[in-house]
Simulated assay, not measured.
Amino acid sequence: MKIDDLLEIEEIRQLRLAYSNYFDGHDTERLKTLFCEDAVCEFPEEFGGNWVGRDTIVANFSKELTRLGEPYDTMHVVANPWITLTGPDTAHGRCYLIDLLTRQQAGTGDYETRGGHDNPLLFLGMYEDDYRKVDGEWKFANIKLPFFWPERTFEQVRRPDV
């Protein structure tokens, strides 16, 4: 691996971190900039299944954010990034998602965790992403999010190094 490859991988890692920050902060304008025009988000059926196209993705995120409550009522913690460059303008990666609910007061959102204040854990999942470089910037081309907890929607993942 060369230094240039590491720099590309770091840019992609920063993209994933920006997604978490913009989503948790309810900043849909910035969130929109992270996606390719023809991006696809593959979510479990309870979240609407596949969302196709950047505008649809952002519209659906906007709806979901109103269900979540206020900015930073939920917080994405992403860990264990594994990113592989698959071409000069393409890459694949995955990371674990630990989704926390920071607020559990009646009337501030539709979500509640199983443990209430004693357990802020909302979801455990794994983002599996395909990235594409567009005009010199890495963007999400595809996001797949199977869950492990509380309901298991996980079936299988691709190895990023294949």
Rank of each mutant, 00 (worst) to 15 (best):
L100I: 11
D135T: 00
E151P: 00
D129R: 06
F43G: 01
K2M: 10
S20T: 14
R158P: 00
K2H: 06
Y19N: 07
D118K: 13
Q105K: 13
Y127W: 07
Q14C: 12
G125E: 06
Q14G: 00
G115I: 11
L68M: 05
D110R: 07
T33H: 01
K133R: 15
G93P: 01
L121I: 11
E45V: 09
P150Q: 09
K63S: 08
A106V: 15
R16M: 11
G25F: 04
L68N: 03
G87I: 02
N21H: 14
V77W: 08
A141R: 12
L121G: 00
F23Q: 06
F123T: 14
F140G: 04
A59T: 11
T153Q: 03
R94F: 05
R158S: 11
F35I: 01
L15T: 14
F47P: 04
N50I: 00
V162K: 08
K139F: 02
V58C: 04
G109N: 02
P81V: 08
L101D: 08
A59W: 06
A79D: 03
Y131R: 03
K2Y: 08
D73W: 04
A91W: 04
T84I: 00
V134C: 12
V162N: 14
E8L: 07
P88M: 07
Q105I: 14
Y111F: 15
D4W: 09
F61Y: 13
P44F: 06
P150S: 02
V162D: 15
Y96E: 05
E151R: 11
P120K: 02
P44V: 10
R103N: 15
E42V: 11
D161E: 14
F140A: 07
T74K: 00
P81S: 11
L68C: 13
T84H: 12
A91Q: 05
V77N: 15
L121T: 03
N80R: 08
G25Q: 13
Y22W: 12
E112N: 05
I9T: 13
E64I: 03
Q105N: 06
L101Y: 02
D5S: 14
E37F: 03
R16K: 15
L7V: 12
G69N: 10
R67C: 10
R94K: 03
T86A: 09
D110S: 09
G93A: 03
L31R: 05
G125A: 11
L97I: 13
T113H: 06
L101T: 06
S62P: 05
T108Y: 10
T28H: 09
L68P: 01
T28M: 11
F43D: 03
G49I: 07
D118E: 11
V77I: 15
E151Y: 06
M75Q: 15
K63G: 07
I98K: 07
D135W: 01
T153W: 09
V77K: 08
A91E: 09
E128Q: 14
